[in-house]
Amino acid sequence: MPDRPAGGITPDRVLVERMAAGDERALGELYDHHGGTAYAVAVTIVGERADAEEVVADVFGQMWRTAEQFDPSRGSVVAWLAAITRTRALDLLRARGRRARTIERAASMSDEGLAAPIAAAGNAPDRGPELDEARRLVRRSLAELPAPQRRVIELAYFGGLSQSEIAAELQEPLGTVKTRMRAGLEKLRASLGPLLEGAA
């Protein structure tokens, strides 16, 4: 996710620098930018709102404590946040002995996949038009993938499954799963270009 241009919203990177210096307001602002997204990811993975809240509290706690170690040359703040959120949510799911909602839905998943029903679900009011735009683009890009490609990507990302586990889950050859994942990610990289910082 690109840093916001001048004019109102402080870039994430600057917020993280201020967090490292102990500025709680910066943490609040980062939460205002991304809390809704982190929560949505957590709910999708863990399936329970109370658990998702715990995950989000953990995620921002970890970002707060380790803000000083954030290295912008190694990736964006959103990539950092998304990685922590996903890891925490999957950890909690494993600790609870549950499987991700995404996996439960995999068997019955229609061609619409995860992205389609979301469009009507309303937008979290945490960052206005720009966030809406990002959501629209990501959902449209996912929706435009061939269903088998989208499915393996969603199972990996929201279900925490490895390629071999996905192959077993879908009863497809491992090689097929690998090819689909690679092709789907390449298409996403192309279609999400406008959202990618310094995209080639």
Partner: peptide, 17 residues
């Protein structure tokens, strides 16, 4: 590719915390 996969977060259903 991590930047790409991170954006998948925006595909999660729009739950409001």
């Amino acid at each position: 590719l991590r930047e790409v996969t991170a954006l998948l977060a925006y595909a999660a259903p729009g739950e409001v915390p």
